[in-house]
Amino acid sequence: MFLPAVHAETDTAVLLQFIRENPLGILITGIQSSQQAFLQCSQVPFNPQVKAMIEAVDSKPRNVLEFDDDVMVLFNGKHDHYVTPKFYVETKPDTGKVVPTWNYSAVQIYGKLSIYYDSKTPETDAFLAKQLHDLSEHTERSIMGYTGGDKPQPWKVNDAPDSYIEVMKRNIVGIEIRVNKIEGKFKMSQEKPPGDRDGVVKGFARLGNKTGEAISALVKARGELHDFKKQALNKEGQ
């Protein structure tokens, strides 16, 4: 990931919260395989990506297969958008030296991967049971807002028949990544002069849709954070 300092987010808590809010990661692997493509990416690591994984590690007789090379998972923010130079109301009228860009946010993690693919083994059975429970709880409550009370009750794994869940487990490949690096960025016009940044905030707000409103709010928040950090650094240097 290209990480200019002005766009980089270094707070691990912020990056982890970003992942919780944008949980559909894209698993990216580079695996030597006799039948599958070397580079693969998927939101659902099944066929053929998982076949390449199993081929690479299946010579090791163990219940949990551990992959030697690092993998990467990319998490994209919910909102991104093209930025027209017409939003730059400070620089454009003065010099005309402006070009289009794209505002977006993303987090990447790197780490070692373990594969749980044989549901008949106790390790895989326990791992899949915990993951199904934890992921369902998170997505039902945090993503759907099903928290009970005045809102609907969340769906639970035990709402489905045990026999059905056991069949589903046989068709699920569980992956666990031991994270050794995490990085992220919010490219939200925070490097622009205040007048241009204000033009971007107002320009996106005028789009009149959810994406425009979300980008407008992010540009404003990230701009204010950038100014705060800059002022703090200036005070330290005095």
Score class of each variant (00 low, 15 high):
159 D>R: 09
207 L>S: 04
174 G>D: 08
189 S>T: 01
131 Q>L: 14
206 R>V: 00
215 I>P: 03
160 A>P: 01
194 P>Y: 00
184 G>V: 11
186 F>W: 10
204 F>V: 04
173 V>D: 05
168 M>C: 10
186 F>V: 00
222 R>Q: 15
129 A>G: 11
137 E>W: 03
193 P>Q: 03
190 Q>R: 11
130 K>H: 15
156 K>P: 03
202 K>H: 08
151 K>G: 00
130 K>L: 09
132 L>H: 12
207 L>E: 11
215 I>R: 13
226 H>C: 15
190 Q>A: 02
171 N>L: 06
216 S>V: 06
136 S>W: 07
223 G>K: 13
177 I>P: 08
153 Q>E: 12
159 D>T: 08
220 K>D: 10
194 P>G: 07
155 W>R: 08
132 L>N: 15
129 A>M: 10
135 L>G: 12
215 I>S: 05
132 L>R: 13
204 F>C: 06
126 A>H: 14
174 G>I: 04
192 K>M: 11
217 A>D: 09
194 P>C: 03
138 H>Q: 13
177 I>D: 09
147 T>S: 10
179 V>I: 15
159 D>H: 13
166 E>D: 15
213 E>P: 01
220 K>W: 02
226 H>R: 15
146 Y>T: 01
145 G>S: 10
189 S>A: 13
210 K>E: 13
226 H>G: 12
162 D>P: 02
